[in-house]
Simulated scan of single mutants.
Amino acid sequence: MRDVAAAASVSVGTVSNVLNSPDKVAPATVARVLAAIEKLGFVRNDAARQLRAGRSRCVGLVVLDVGNPFFTDIARAAEKRAGDHDLTVLLGTSDDDVSREQAYIDTFDEQRVFGLLVTPIGDDLSRLHALRRRGTPVILVDRDGTGTPFDSVAVDDIAGGRLAVSHLCEIGRRRIAYVGGPSTLRQVADRRRGAEGAVAEVPGATLEVIDTAAPSVLAGREAGAALLRRDRADRPDAVFCANDLLALGVLQAFTTGGASVRVPEEIALIGYDDIAFTDSAVVPLSSIRQPTARIGSTAIDLLIAANTAPAKHVPSNPVFQPELVARASTLGDIWDTMSHHGDPQRGIPQGRNL
């Protein structure tokens, strides 16, 4: 900074103001300092700045699976909103591994991040409580933190599960299977609760729960293959999957190989999240849409608010409502008659929001 100050013929304090509060400096002086920075190739030492400020300009984000487009979209939205506040998002994925999640939390704690956004794996939030006590704001993402000291942003997954299974019942399906990931995941458990609530309201409807080791395409393919090994009379007439990756895997099993079944004529199929690949699958997939852009940007807004007046901050826990997007995997021929009303710019038909 001293070199930059000498090159621009200003004080070190002026250079600091240009970097941190440029509105306090005359435009001509800002231009002269920035020209000196460019010429010298100056990059400020953020570690030194952290020592003075006690906090970095980085935000830690820990998600369950960065390979899932749902979390990728949340991260992209958070990154965009963080940029508006001169913040940088550092992304980590826990891969549904508690020890990996804890390692990321500890690393971000060591880096004195501006705050932590996290989708926790289980219900043990003790490490997050410790982080918060040390002054680092924690925002729960895709998890309702009502009743905890944490801010959170979430979607009503119980309502989403109910929405999915109610749709299946409305099109006449009664033997419904729920293919979920690990039941330890709160989202999986809540979507199951919603599904059970919908089934309980329809006479003759049943819900079979099929757990998987992971909420992945491979796990969905294995679950679908297991269903195909049953006699036709023992198969469900509809499948609700806890996320779209599972549903795409089930769809692969149903539509490839010699023992394939017709979707939705024999088995209707619906997923959850409405990721980008759902409407371009071999059978366009019905899904429950979550507002990923709003989740990511709201998480950053909550973090900014928590850092503005920590002593007076009252946690906020917005919960968004999911939306049913019905496509060919449940609507079949009905959807085909609607398909020419799709988006000509995208070249593919649109689902129907219900």
Score class of each variant (00 low, 15 high):
G181L: 10
A259K: 12
D157P: 07
A164P: 08
A299I: 00
G135D: 03
L248N: 01
R262G: 12
D23P: 09
R100S: 11
E196N: 11
V4L: 00
A268V: 03
V30H: 06
S16Y: 02
G160L: 07
V209M: 09
T298V: 03
V25S: 07
V63S: 06
P149R: 04
V282R: 13
L128M: 09
L302F: 00
W335S: 05
R57G: 14
P149F: 06
R229S: 14
S260E: 11
P310S: 03
G147D: 08
D96R: 11
A75M: 09
R127Y: 11
S126P: 06
L87G: 07
G258Y: 02
V153M: 08
G197P: 07
P22R: 01
L218S: 12
G351L: 04
R162Y: 13
D144S: 05
P149H: 07
I348V: 15
A259S: 13
P149S: 10
S166E: 15
G249F: 05
A219F: 08
G258C: 03
V155R: 02
F70G: 02
L128W: 00
D190N: 14
E110W: 01
A48G: 14
G122S: 14
D190V: 05
V319M: 02
P315W: 01
T292L: 03
V138S: 06
D336H: 14
D336F: 11
R100P: 06
T330N: 01
F277V: 13
A159C: 09
A328S: 12
A5W: 00
T148L: 09
F42V: 03
I267F: 05
G92S: 12
V15P: 04
L324G: 05
G204W: 08
S94Q: 06
A130G: 10
P149T: 06
D123P: 07
P264N: 04
Y104P: 05
V155I: 11
V15R: 00
G351S: 07
H340E: 13
D96K: 08
T278G: 02
R235C: 08
N68I: 02
